[in-house]
Simulated assay, not measured.
Amino acid sequence: MRTITYRLGAFYFLLFFGFGAHLPLLSLYLKDFGLTGMQIGTLLAAGPIVSILVQPFWGMVSDRFQAQKKILVLTLTLAAVSGLLFTVADTFRAFLILYVFLVLFQSAIVPIIDAVTLSHVQKVKGDYGSVRLYGALGFAIAVWVAGHLSEAVGLQSIFYLYGGAFLICVGIAITLPHQGLPLSTSIWSGLGKLLRIPQYIVFLVAAFLIFGPINANNSYFSLFYTAIGGAVAGVGTAFLLFAGSEAPIMRVAGRFAKRYGMLSLIVLSGTVSAIRWYYYASQPSPRMVIALFLLQGISVGLFLPIAASYIRENTPIEVQVTAQAIYAAFANGLGTMVASYAAGWLLDHFGIFSTYRYFAFSSLIGAILLVLLAVRQKNVSIKRNFHKI
């Protein structure tokens, strides 16, 4: 069992190494290749749209046919091939088609491996955050490696790093055990079960409001950082510290969740996010932004592992992958798309600091929704205990 835990940790490290190798530098590669700002924006906007459409599909198929391992191997391979083909693409149309396919296959991976990991750690009485933290480490290291390698041999190297990391993940995925969860009666009945769980729906909305701005910040941070007087080189340092700060928080997230409750810590995460964005909107110095890098760890490092565990504990076991996939599509896909478009409109009309005021307001509303959800669940628990007496 411990060997499986190590394999899952290695899988997360390599998976997010692949993400970190290409995501921060993709727009720069496309710009250097000669694409216009409109073309780059159109291409990057296609990602959230595709993930919104296909992530629930991958989850429902995986649950219905118990094909987690097969889908992982297939989608990892095809995503790696799509990434490697970027090195030979030479037109906007080719880049767009490849990016759509890359996101199409990539969207299946995280919800499935999350569900597999959550099932495993429950069996061995382990902690999801202690495994997921390797993803944060992989992303942080990849940003540094890709940046230096790109300077040395060119930006095309980001796709070789991405493809190589994903192909190694294929080898790990083949060795993972089959979960053997109860079989869902049908795809649509499984979806219907989820939509009848009120706490799941409220949680999705809150995640949409909190995590959408967190992801959108990845696109707008460089504009913000240079607007407050920071150097372009400092953006890479900031991302390295931000991503690296998530790992130690993930390590202890499960322990704190048992002591203080999952919703309490997710409320803390949303509140810290709101405070962080309000502080950014106040136009702080670049030095203070870097100095307070741990705010990223508290917000993201708490939110990611505890949110996945909360969904597992509040949804039927036979639709676990579907539940994680819909959460990913709603928070990472739709949330990111809406936050990015709203931020772009505010940027054009009122400037970059108004964008961060919007991020703060959205995160605060999400945190308030989670407080109301926590109060409701506490009241339900009290009523149940009362009826037992």
Rank of each mutant, 00 (worst) to 15 (best):
Y29K: 05
W345C: 01
A331Q: 05
S150T: 14
A328K: 01
T87S: 12
V103L: 14
S189I: 10
L181P: 04
D127K: 13
S363L: 03
L137S: 14
I168D: 04
L181G: 05
G129W: 10
P177T: 07
V54M: 10
I311Y: 09
A115E: 01
F303T: 06
L364P: 02
S184K: 04
L8A: 08
T336E: 13
L30V: 09
F33N: 03
I382C: 02
E313P: 00
F203N: 02
S150K: 11
F11S: 08
L161V: 11
G335H: 06
Y225D: 06
V338G: 03
L240M: 14
Y279W: 15
G230Q: 12
A231K: 15
T75V: 12
I368D: 01
Q283M: 09
I97K: 02
L263Q: 04
A247S: 15
L263Y: 03
F13P: 00
L104D: 02
F361V: 14
L137Y: 13
F86P: 03
A339I: 13
T322M: 03
Y279C: 02
F330V: 15
A79P: 06
P48Q: 12
D114I: 04
R7T: 11
V371K: 08
A328I: 00
Q68M: 05
T355C: 09
A79E: 11
K388D: 12
A308R: 00
G229A: 10
A173E: 10
F16R: 05
V338P: 02
A367W: 07
G190L: 04
Q199F: 03
L84R: 09
A89G: 13
G366R: 01
G230P: 07
I389A: 14
H178M: 03
F330Y: 05
G171L: 05
A207D: 00
R384Y: 09
I249G: 11
K31P: 00
Y356E: 06
A342W: 09
I249Y: 07
L14Y: 06
L194G: 02
G254H: 08
A238C: 08
A21C: 10
V380Q: 14
Y220D: 00
V81T: 15
M337C: 06
F13C: 00
F101R: 10
S340C: 05
S219T: 14
A243G: 03
P213W: 07
G261D: 06
H178D: 13
R384T: 11
S309N: 08
N314C: 08
F16V: 09
E246T: 12
L44R: 03
F65K: 12
A21E: 02
K383H: 10
A231T: 12
L263E: 01
Y162V: 03
L23G: 01
